[in-house]
């Protein structure tokens, strides 16, 4: 595409100002421009971090929760233990695996919501108490909070483990 500018009238008029073409080849400039664009596009951060709202219960007297509407989730190193109601009532205990990213916890929560609905209690009144253990990590905490969002659990709270919960975690099969 490059053009060689040659004098138009031969050697006779060499002393005169040579009439040159005013056209400049822009092709390398376009190349450069798009090269730089490509660089900036590739270095741009594509996935910006998002924020997850997290609200702790305010200090004060402990809130009393009704047995039928409560689901407790205990977090251990790789799995979680859930039970409905209170521990001293010998509730049914589910152990769910948290590592594989499975739906076990979601299934339990939705089953509980359905059960509440069947008993003519609003599924929104379900209260999930999350009690992370000493061995659990942040990933699990966020995963459970995420389940709360996914299953649309309106009320959930972070709680501390009680001795009974600790025994349950230690004694699980």
């Amino acid at each position: 595409m490059a053009e060689i500018n040659t004098p138009e009238h031969g050697k006779k008029h060499a002393s005169k100002t040579i009439a040159r073409s005013l056209r400049v080849d822009m092709t390398p400039m376009v190349d450069l421009g798009f090269l730089l664009i490509t660089f900036f596009v590739f270095t741009a951060v594509v996935n910006k971090p998002t924020a997850m709202k997290f609200i702790l219960p305010a200090e004060g007297d402990p809130t009393h929760v009704p047995v039928t509407k409560t689901l407790t989730v205990l977090l251990d190193q790789t799995d979680a233990v859930c039970y409905e109601g209170f521990l001293h009532d010998n509730p049914r205990i589910h152990t769910v695996n948290m590592t594989a990213g499975g739906n076990e916890l979601r299934d339990i929560i939705t089953a509980k919501q359905k059960a509440l609905g069947a008993a003519r209690i609003s599924p929104d009144s379900l209260i999930v108490v999350i009690k992370p253990g000493e061995n659990s990590n942040y990933r699990q905490l966020v995963a459970v909070l995420d389940e709360m969002m996914i299953c649309d659990v309106k009320r959930h709270a972070l709680g501390n483990m009680e001795p009974g919960d600790r025994n349950l975690l230690n004694g699980k099969p």
């Binding site: 924020a51 609200i55 702790l56 253990g133 942040y138």
Partner: peptide, 29 residues
């Protein structure tokens, strides 16, 4: 991801003692 929960709890406690209860957790969408 691998941060142990007790550390997170202590950090939350530092906020809680200042009467702050609302947080934003940084996550990936």
């Amino acid at each position: 991801n691998e941060t142990k929960y007790p550390v997170v709890r202590n950090v939350l406690e530092a906020f809680k003692r200042n009467d702050l209860n609302k947080f934003q957790l940084v996550t990936k969408f």
